[in-house]
């Protein structure tokens, strides 16, 4: 499984959303279900999927599909791989 597939699966698991609907606009502001619990679930799964440990500011900043990609990539995860 590619890293971007792993990343998309995190959102599929947390929100039960079809991967085709995921884009940079998929965010806290546009998704009704996106509350603090869902955000923490996203972060937890991202940490487990890529074996990374995020900082508090990353956890707080994980507020959209696009921002999450930047945060994960900053941990050295190549989402093109």
């Amino acid at each position: 499984m590619s890293n971007i597939e792993k990343y998309n699966n995190i959102f599929v698991e947390v929100f039960g959303v079809d991967p085709s609907l995921l884009n940079d606009d998929f965010s806290k502001d546009t998704v009704d279900l996106w509350d603090s619990v869902h955000q923490l679930n996203l972060v937890s799964l991202a940490e487990e999927s890529f074996d990374i440990m995020l900082d508090p500011e990353d956890i707080m900043g994980f507020t959209s599909y696009g921002k999450g990609k930047e945060i994960v990539a900053a941990q050295g995860v190549d989402l093109e791989a």
Binding site: S36, Q39, M53, I59
Partner: peptide
């Protein structure tokens, strides 16, 4: 502030233990 506390508690302490 639940979100701030949670994000702190699940990040800083485990990093330090590691």
């Amino acid at each position: 502030n639940g979100m701030n506390v949670f994000s702190f508690a699940i990040s800083k302490p485990p990093k330090s233990v590691e």
